[in-house]
Amino acid sequence: MMIKEVVALIFFIIGSAFGIVGMIGLFRFKDPYSRLHAGSLCGTTTVFSYLIALLILSPSIAITSRIVILIIFFLISAPTGSSIVSKFIWESEEAEDQRRSMQKEDKSL
């Protein structure tokens, strides 16, 4: 009984620490790409750690099985969402200058 709670506490502390760092990064970085990296630190690592902690702490078997399914779908949906956002930044006009400078650098793209 005690070991479960200690493991959950460890995951909780790890997740919270990464979340705080991600929040600092969200205000410290200047361009949208770097902000997306810092945001995924909070949106992916923190939520994943919390999900594992909740999986350990879950009170009944019905809740445990649903959290396992949720983790599997989270592994699919979290990268898809941030991939849609990153593709929008790549095609938007704000990143146009960056892409032009990159095309100058290597001709193959």
Partner: peptide, 25 residues
């Protein structure tokens, strides 16, 4: 490409056939 996006620090921007465009922090 999804597992490259899943880890913070690397971000897939585009995937054509076997050609990946990745933003690396």
């Amino acid at each position: 490409s999804n597992s490259i996006t899943f880890t913070p620090g690397t971000l897939t921007l585009d995937l054509n056939d076997d050609h990946l465009v990745v933003h690396w922090l």
